[in-house]
């Protein structure tokens, strides 16, 4: 049986935990109580996915690794998540800038990512790596809901008011360039493809383009032109934002390395 390399599992797990952390920031601050609950749900699903993937990676790597040692005791440069997912819930600003949360940014990001993940989990549920396939099958159901939720709001924003349309377009313009990272395989992805346990994400691009085009058309939003810089978060070269996110997430656990929780 071919197994996915651990670096690849960590890439998938880091994606889930980092976006789970960002989505959970809305807990108690949502635009309406129903959305508070929905975002908490999405976040819970993502953290659940991260736990399963970290557990698998920990079991395979041995040496006393646990889901928490992988989530809490690796530094930012060891994280393999897409840069898109670590960006704050607001428009483009430097790492130490403060700003209000913007729901359009959150929704558009969830849309762009979940549109990829419904395709990727669907492909991975057929992986010869049975453990990974099982996680993919479970995660696919969740990603479908995440996509449904996010696409629904993208359409509401695009079609809704002048302000919501402008905010959604601004969020798309800000975030779309980061999706370029999806289509440029990292060394870990190349190794996973070579192992036979993973799929080449580039083969999913046309389907992703179609999902995005359908939703943006219904929302009357424009797909931005993208050129230039391709982010490299999944190779450990992140934006200014990840170390802040991890500093907050890991601080308590690291202050009590011998603690049991």
């Amino acid at each position: 049986m071919s197994t996915a390399p651990n670096d690849y599992l960590l890439h998938l797990a880091d994606n889930a935990v980092v976006l789970g952390q960002r989505d959970a920031e809305w807990c108690g601050h949502g635009p309406i109580l129903e959305e508070d609950l929905a975002l908490a749900n999405v976040s819970l699903d993502l953290i659940g996915q991260a736990r399963l993937l970290y557990q698998l990676a920990a079991a395979r790597s041995g040496g006393g690794a646990t889901e928490d040692s992988l989530a809490y005791f690796r530094d930012d440069t060891a994280f393999r998540n897409y840069t898109l997912l670590e960006l704050p819930n607001h428009g483009a600003l430097v790492g130490y800038a403060a700003s209000d949360r913007d729901y359009a940014t959150t929704i558009v990001r969830n849309f762009l990512y979940s549109a990829l993940m419904v395709l990727l989990w669907d492909a991975l549920q057929k992986s010869p790596d049975a453990d990974l396939a099982a996680i993919a099958a479970k995660s696919l159901k969740e990603a479908r809901y995440h996509l449904h939720h996010a696409a629904d709001w993208v359409v509401k924003f695009g079609d809704g008011t002048e302000e919501s349309h402008a905010r959604a377009q601004a969020a798309l313009d800000h975030l779309f360039p980061y999706t370029e990272e999806f289509w440029t395989p990292s060394a870990a992805e190349d190794a996973a493809i070579a192992s036979g346990a993973a799929v080449d994400v580039r083969t999913l691009r046309a389907a992703w383009d179609a999902i995005v085009a359908d939703t943006l058309a219904e929302a009357t939003l424009k797909r931005p032109e993208v050129r230039g810089y391709v982010p490299e978060g999944k190779q450990g070269r992140h934006s200014e934002h990840l170390s802040y996110l991890l500093g907050e997430m890991q601080g308590l656990a690291r202050a009590h390395p011998d603690g049991t929780w």
Binding site: L37, L44, I47, M249, L252, W261
Partner: peptide
């Protein structure tokens, strides 16, 4: 939530706060 010291406790806390909203 953002500082929960383990993923299990983070998940439990999010689910709990979500219950309160419910």
């Amino acid at each position: 939530i953002s500082r929960a010291p383990s993923l299990k406790r983070k998940a439990i806390l999010i689910a709990k706060v979500q219950d309160e909203g419910g």
